[in-house]
Simulated assay, not measured.
Amino acid sequence: MSLKKVKEAAEMLKSRFSFNPKAGLILGSGLGDLAEELDDAVVFPYEDIPHFPISTVAGHKGQLVAGLLEGVPVLAMQGRFHFYEGYSMQDVTFPVRVMHEAGCESLIVTNACGAMNTEFSPGDLMIITDHINFTGANPLIGKNTEEFGPRFPDMSRAYDEGLVVHALDTASSLSIDVQQGIYAAVSGPSYMAGAELKMLQTCGADTVGMSTVPETIAAKHMGMNVLGISCITDMAVPGETDGITHEEVMKTAAAAKPVFKKLVRGILGQSSKETWEKERTNL
């Protein structure tokens, strides 16, 4: 990935707002409305940001919003990019590189997903504790850019344990029931066959989706703190699923939005300034 392109995109963004963003937000399918609640917001359509891809999926508005959420300066993506859209993994993770270069030291990444854990239900929110990469690709394949991070970054704690505890404590204080679990990423765009779901379930995955893991890998490569939140939109239990459509996913995600927004606001609002800061050793 071109460091020059990352810097050009970040410089354009920084020239349009005066604060120093601390956290990046990637808002998944049906969850992008939260970005419209930022204070002192500056909106950047993706097509106006140098070298940015263009989102093509329904439910992804396709713009980046800079502003304050619960007093925390953030950059929020209304819609992400997916491997299945034909983008390379480097394209998919380009915005994460840009957000880090613009100042973000932490990343909250969200998604809509299916649940294989029978104790979960549609509409539940799950704090991601770990992931399984079944996409068949990795955004770090190719020549390593040392300015971003090391050739072989450690992923044994991909999701920051302190942020996970903070998210769980925040949910409890707000009387929001949340799940915890492992998210499996697949390439998509087809939904999983029954045998594939059984394989993922056997491997220990609680949920399955088509995003999040590439962005997490890129963020950890650069030393960012990562918190993952999944919105469970359907049950993907082997032998029991009757099929699912994208429209149904969007409908369930929309119904869960009020609780999702309350949780994210709480996570940001009940944190200290230091929660979103980390010594930057790369860029």
Rank of each mutant, 00 (worst) to 15 (best):
D33Q: 09
V264G: 06
P45I: 10
D33H: 13
S187N: 01
V42A: 07
M126I: 00
F94H: 07
V42C: 07
V178P: 00
G149M: 04
V72T: 05
E47A: 14
L197R: 10
A112V: 04
V65M: 09
G228E: 01
L3R: 10
A137G: 02
G149H: 03
D169M: 10
F148A: 08
G86M: 06
P214M: 03
H82V: 10
M222P: 04
D91V: 03
D242P: 09
N133M: 00
D160F: 05
I244C: 07
P122S: 00
R80S: 01
E248W: 13
T93P: 01
S156N: 14
G67R: 03
N20S: 15
H51I: 11
D234G: 08
G188K: 00
V92I: 04
E36R: 15
H131C: 14
D124E: 05
T93L: 00
L227R: 06
S271E: 06
D124W: 00
F52R: 05
D177F: 03
L38Q: 07
P238E: 01
G266K: 11
L34P: 05
V213Q: 00
A256C: 05
F120H: 00
G209R: 00
T202I: 12
V249M: 10
E37D: 11
G269Y: 12
G209N: 11
L197W: 11
R265N: 14
K262D: 04
T129K: 13
I127F: 01
T202H: 12
